[in-house]
Computed example of a mutant assay.
Amino acid sequence: MKKTTLPDILYSLNKIIMKKKILLFILLTQSLLSFAQIDLKKIPIVDSFRCYDFSEEALHFYFDLTEVKNSQYTYHFRYKKSTQIIDIYSNDTLNFQGFVMNVAAQIKNRKGYDYNYDYCFEKLQLKDSIATSAGKLILNKIYSSPNSNDIEQWEHNWLDCGRSHFNLKQVDEYKTKKYSCYTQQPSTVKDIANIKSAISQLDSTINSQEDFFSNFRNKLEKGKSYYLGFSIMYKMSEKEIQQLEKNKPQREYLFSMKEQIDNSLKEQLYEIYDGADFNECYCDYTFSFSKKGKLKSLKANHKNFISRLFNKDKRKHYKEAKKLLKKLNISDLKLRHGFTRSIHFYEKGYNIHDYTIY
């Protein structure tokens, strides 16, 4: 049996120590990676309190943000956009602090005829220099500006095209300001021009730290749909992205043929369409044509199959739509690929739409 010497013992101990160092390094690396890849925070949107305008009550309820009017700070300014809440606060007018909160409502799953949602959000600290510049800008250029309701020339669009709302506290004074669709307002009016300039400067100041929204959007889970204030975004999964790339030649070809396909469909429908068959229809269908130029499939865009199954008129209109579309023939175009379109019938006519992502 070999005798164990002191050098042998020291060598063995050194090997054990090295193994432990390597293991510790691996664990630390994994921890750092895990920290760097932390998911965004999520919170379910309660059915009884669905709020889409970032009201003070909603921000307190969902994100535990203090209502500005109750803030402990002497100066507290909250700037609310379609996907962001930006808080700037201070006890003097020289040094401000603040944060940016990015928010999106993720469509989680369907519940009957409705959907469940989660708020996906993150809260990021602003650099003090950025917060200070933003705070002074709000105090000097926005705090005393007139509200949009007080400007006669402000065009109030019923379509939500982006919000710029403010909750402002200065000492014991509290006020709110709303400037919806400010980018679409006429700059020929002095008050409007000043407001547009001030908000634009504020956005530039905040985004000079980083492009907060773009970075947030990149972090959102793939394969999901999101409400982003006044728009909906679907973020494709990796598999869908790969499939999209794979189908690129097909999409490019169909795009090159789009005008010819649409014109041919419309010309033929004009000749054979009989409005009497679709009286009081208001029906939506998605149809596909094969590369041979004939109807391949027709799907009714109703909420569910049952709504059509037990509705005599809907069944009748579906049959009429199928009969009508079967008469169309665009084989003369000699297509290399099939295509999909949507058609909407109403009392006096129809509209064809192309929702293909080219």
Rank of each mutant, 00 (worst) to 15 (best):
I45A: 09
F61S: 06
D47I: 04
H60D: 14
I43V: 14
E67R: 11
E56F: 03
S48Q: 12
Y52N: 12
K69I: 11
I45T: 02
N70R: 11
E67L: 06
S55D: 02
E57D: 13
D64Y: 04
R50D: 02
D64V: 09
L59H: 03
P44K: 00
E67G: 03
C51M: 12
Y52W: 12
P44G: 07
L65N: 12
D64R: 11
I43F: 02
F63N: 02
V46F: 09
D39V: 03
S71D: 05
H60F: 08
D64S: 15
P44C: 10
D39M: 05
A58N: 00
S48N: 11
F61Q: 06
V46M: 00
K41R: 12
E57I: 10
L40V: 06
D64Q: 13
Y62L: 01
K69E: 08
D39S: 13
L40I: 07
N70P: 00
A58F: 07
N70F: 13
L65S: 11
L40C: 02
Y52G: 15
R50G: 00
V68H: 03
R50S: 04
C51W: 10
D47E: 14
F63A: 01
K41F: 15
S55C: 07
K41N: 11
C51I: 07
F54H: 06
K41E: 13
I45R: 04
V68C: 03
F63P: 01
L59K: 07
D47T: 05
F63S: 04
S55H: 00
I43D: 11
P44R: 00
D53H: 08
P44L: 13
S48F: 07
F49A: 07
C51E: 15
F61V: 01
F63C: 04
L59D: 10
D53A: 09
Y62V: 01
L40N: 06
P44D: 07
L40A: 02
I43E: 13
L65H: 14
I43P: 08
E56T: 12
D39A: 13
V46Y: 00
E56Q: 12
F61G: 04
D53K: 00
K41P: 02
T66Q: 12
T66M: 12
N70S: 14
E56M: 01
S55A: 03
F61D: 09
K42M: 13
V46D: 11
E57P: 03
F61R: 07
S48L: 04
N70W: 04
C51H: 14
P44A: 11
R50Q: 14
D47F: 06
L59N: 10
D53V: 11
V68N: 00
K69G: 05
F49Y: 12
Y62R: 02
K42A: 14
A58C: 15
V68Q: 01
C51V: 08
C51G: 09
L65Q: 14
K69A: 12
E56G: 08
A58G: 06
D64E: 13
L59V: 07
I43R: 08
S71G: 07
I43K: 12
F54R: 01
K69L: 04
R50M: 13
F63W: 11
F54A: 06
D64W: 00
S71H: 08
S71Y: 06
H60N: 15
L65P: 06
E67S: 03
T66Y: 03
Y52P: 05
F61C: 01
L40D: 02
